[in-house]
Design a protein around this nucleic acid. Structure first.
Lengths: 111, 111
DNA sequence: GAAAGTTTCTACAAACTAGAAGTAATAGGC
DNA sequence: GCCTATTACTTCTAGTTTGTAGAAACTTTC
């Protein structure tokens, strides 16, 4: 029973970005979505490494599309969530929710 | 800007367990709380390694108490959340909430 | 050939995990 | 009263997985 059973912190964020993006999920948009929504800066290498790992686990799949008729229009590798990935994501959320249940931020005295 | 700026997945759970436990937070109770609430099995080494790391970051502090007059009553090392830890925890939650915002589980088709 | 948008590669640091070993107390048999 | 078993807890060791960054390569238009 090694690691790999639970989604890491960044893995969760990457998957959520993908869910939010819907059809247009590929490396660069995942990065932008992540930076925009979470407010943290993200290196492109981190995104692809995580995407690759999640794909290897069967949590998502990718396919390379045709080039776009624009400058730099290299074929994009778009990613799609797989059922297992959705389940893993939902489970991560559920565990966190359970742990937060009954804990109030006011108890935490955060200023 | 290295890693260590954001709480890992397990770090979040350990801190939450500590918050939930209040006064009686030490290695073994953190483990039990984690197993009971999150439903996942947790090795004791994982707990202490994480607790140590969080203490090193200043997110929590520990002190060894007097032995209890019970069998195995070794002095316990109890942990307390530090303000920085509470802030980090709240921030992790906020980011995740933002990313989940607008995403419905029904969209995810989780059976 | 310069520029833009994208992916791949390389390499290292941090986080996670497991379990054995060590420590310190009481309990119970003799 | 002492030995050894048992219980509760912490420390240590060592390996795997995740997370991070940025340079390099690719592919297309300008």
């Amino acid at each position: 029973m090694g690691k790999g059973e639970y989604l890491g912190e960044f893995e969760q964020l990457v998957m959520l970005a993908l869910v939010r993006l819907g059809k247009v999920g590929y490396g660069m948009t995942v990065r932008r979505e992540l930076e925009a929504t979470s407010g943290r800066s993200v290196s492109i290498g981190a995104v692809y490494a995580t995407l690759d790992r999640l794909e290897a686990k069967g949590y998502l799949s990718s396919s390379v599309g045709d080039p776009e008729p624009v400058r730099g229009g290299r074929g994009r590798r778009t990613f799609t969530m797989e059922p297992d990935g959705l389940v893993a994501l939902a489970r991560s959320r559920a565990v966190l929710d359970k742990m937060w249940d009954g804990v109030r931020l006011s108890d935490l005295d955060v200023s």
